[in-house]
Simulated scan of single mutants.
Amino acid sequence: MKYLLSAAVTGLLLVGPQGAFAGPIENACVRSDRAQATRALCRCIDSVAQSALTRSEQRRAARFFSDPDEAQRVRMSKTARDNEFWDRYRAFGASAEQYCAGR
């Protein structure tokens, strides 16, 4: 058991703290050109995304950082799938704004 724990810690050190458990939203946020996108804020937003969106939806939402026009296309879409996703995405955004304010 002690060896397993030691190996896990060594693995985390090799990966580095900033990328070890970053989700798609955090990665996209950090890579964005937004001045307010601090690592702490991006990590907070990602933690809200993990509780509000499926992993697939997180990857989809992460693309909005690099392609804001895609967000507009989804928002304006007439398909039920896109409308349902947009409703969850908006709820996620409101939760993230409330929970992560001031970070």
Rank of each mutant, 00 (worst) to 15 (best):
W86N: 12
E84N: 10
R60F: 05
A20N: 07
C44H: 05
E57T: 00
A8Y: 04
R90T: 14
P24T: 03
L14W: 09
T54L: 02
G19C: 14
R90D: 13
A20F: 08
R43W: 12
R75M: 09
D33M: 12
R34G: 12
T54I: 02
Q18S: 15
R55M: 11
N27D: 15
D33N: 12
A35I: 14
F64T: 03
C100L: 03
R55Y: 09
S51F: 10
Y99C: 09
W86F: 11
M76T: 14
C42W: 02
L41T: 07
G93R: 04
A80N: 13
A52C: 08
Q50N: 07
S32H: 05
L53D: 01
D69A: 14
Q98I: 10
A35L: 14
Q18V: 13
G23I: 01
R103G: 02
M76C: 13
R34P: 04
Q50F: 06
S47C: 05
C29N: 01
A8M: 06
N27T: 15
T79K: 00
A96S: 00
I45W: 12
M1T: 14
F21Y: 05
R31F: 15
Q50V: 07
D33P: 08
E70P: 05
A62C: 02
A40R: 06
P24M: 03
A35T: 13
A22D: 10
S51P: 15
R90Y: 11
